[in-house]
């Protein structure tokens, strides 16, 4: 059984069909890259998966459970975590607290413990966060306010925050855009490493086709809200429809 199964979802905003009849299956521990020109519906797909938008029709199943009408926090609880295209960090918190918000779901929410300042559980989660900090090389920024960190660090914090949820499915919206070429290589290495080390399935939107095709097991191409190609990265990039979508006719 696939981990994620999307059946014929459609969503429109006014007269614009942002997604029309998209179906997709994602197997466990695979990396799927979603490509397509700007405005082709990649981020809309992510927003539908995380419950920020609710599709007009279709079904989305995670592990056989329908998540179509759930709120974002309920979906996060079922095991989908994401990063955002334009960073959505908690800018006034430090890096550590940002990552700890990612652990929020795993806290046993007994109201007496915070009131009496019993912090056993917090220490437990701090240990897990420290592993993520080591993995993402954030040691030097642990107590820095996120707004003061450079862009590359903020990107890593956002990735770490999603990792802290320990999701089954990780949605990465342009995880390597805006980085230097050196940082891009590191980020690509980390994404591959995440799958191996944390056994996560990754759905990834990326414009850098060179890195995307190196990372992905399979690739999906979108154009004006429709899926125009699916297959191995080589197949998709040779597909005439995809070439037309990117370069135009003739």
């Amino acid at each position: 059984m696939p981990l994620l199964e999307i059946k014929d979802i459609s969503i429109s905003f006014g007269g614009i069909m942002a997604l029309s009849g998209i179906s997709l299956q994602v197997q466990e521990e695979k990396i799927i890259a979603v490509i397509g020109p700007n405005g082709s519906g990649k981020t809309t797909l992510f927003n539908c998966l995380t419950g920020i938008y609710h599709p007009n029709e279709g079904e989305i199943h995670l592990n056989g459970e329908n998540i179509l009408r759930l709120s974002p926090d309920a979906i996060a609880e079922l095991g989908i975590a994401r990063t955002f295209q334009n960073l959505r960090l908690f800018m006034n918190m430090n890096v550590l607290d940002n990552l700890l918000v990612g652990r929020h779901l795993h806290f046993r929410k007994n109201p007496l413990l915070p009131m009496l300042r019993i912090r056993k559980e917090e220490i437990l989660h701090r240990k897990i966060i420290e592993e993520i900090i080591d993995f993402l090389d954030l040691q030097a920024y642990r107590k820095a306010r996120v707004a003061d960190c450079p862009y590359g660090v903020q990107k890593r914090v956002e990735l770490g925050r999603a990792l802290a949820l320990e999701p089954k499915l990780l949605l990465l919206d342009e995880p390597i855009s805006g980085l230097t070429s050196e940082e891009k290589e590191e980020a690509a290495y980390r994404i591959n490493e995440i799958r191996g080390r944390f056994q996560m399935t990754i759905l990834l939107v990326e414009h850098d086709l060179r890195i995307a095709s190196r990372l992905a097991d399979s690739m999906v191409a979108f154009y004006y809200g429709q899926k125009i190609a699916q297959g191995t990265p080589e197949e998709v990039q040779r597909n005439p429809e995809v070439i037309r979508a990117y370069l135009g006719d003739d």
Binding site: D73, A76, E77, R88, L89, F90, M91, M93, R161
Partner: peptide, 12 residues
């Protein structure tokens, strides 16, 4: 700081 991100992190 960011209600959409908070919700996506599982904060109801």
């Amino acid at each position: 700081d960011n209600d959409i991100a908070a919700e996506a992190m599982g904060v109801s």
